[in-house]
Design a protein around this nucleic acid. Structure first.
Lengths: 108, 108
DNA sequence: CGCATACTTGGCAAATATGCCAAATAGCGG
DNA sequence: CCGCTATTTGGCATATTTGCCAAGTATGCG
């Protein structure tokens, strides 16, 4: 064992709080859209096509997890990606999504 | 808009099927353990400390999503990481997990 | 064949997540 | 201060996920 099991369990648990916060199509759409730059809640709401209260709750979860950062300017709240390293990750899961059940190892 | 919205929604949806499959502490523990190399179901069960039927179902979901690959040898089934690009991702979410709510941008 | 071991599947109760409505809060213009 | 717009919060019904038990399948061994 490279590392003690209890330590690895704690690591996995911490990671899951972040991963859970993006494990939803709408939330991943927000991350994808925010790669272009910050957007306000109303813009994201229009893109998602669901209730603004639902959007607000999604964003709150993502912010709490550390995925997004927000800034209030006037009446609007602008959200942005807190950590650009996701770009690389999305490339990775796109490969996985396209190779589901087809071969032993994907092409990454 | 860099890309059409419907296309981006489809992308987000595809990604969510992969992300959901790892959005659980036990599943992320498996990925962490499997970074050391393949393990059989009974080894993973002992590490996770839960029922073997639960473990088997977790593994089935992860395999279907393309995260893991499996090989049966004799009585045992060995699982392994299908795509090593996760290592980079874990580094990314570890940074996020450690900077939750503390600053606008994490250090990645 | 018969039995043991390793794993998977079906089914169900309990826990958790989702999404809308109604209501509350915050900032701006007059 | 008042009304308007943007967003958040509380609450609740519905949907999904989780995890165990019981039962089934698969493989090796004598």
């Amino acid at each position: 064992m490279r590392t003690r099991l209890p330590h690895r369990k704690a690591t996995a648990s911490r990671r899951s709080s972040v991963v859970k916060a993006m494990a939803h199509p709408t939330r991943l759409l927000f991350m994808e859209l925010l790669l272009d730059g910050e957007k306000c809640v109303c813009e994201l709401t229009e893109a998602a096509g669901c209730d603004i209260t639902t959007v607000s709750k999604h964003l709150a979860v993502m912010k709490k997890a550390g995925l997004l950062a927000s800034e209030k300017r006037g009446l609007q709240v602008f959200y942005q990606i807190a950590c650009p390293c996701f770009v690389e990750f999305f490339r990775c899961i796109d490969l996985i999504a396209s190779s589901q059940n087809t071969r032993l190892r994907c092409a990454c």
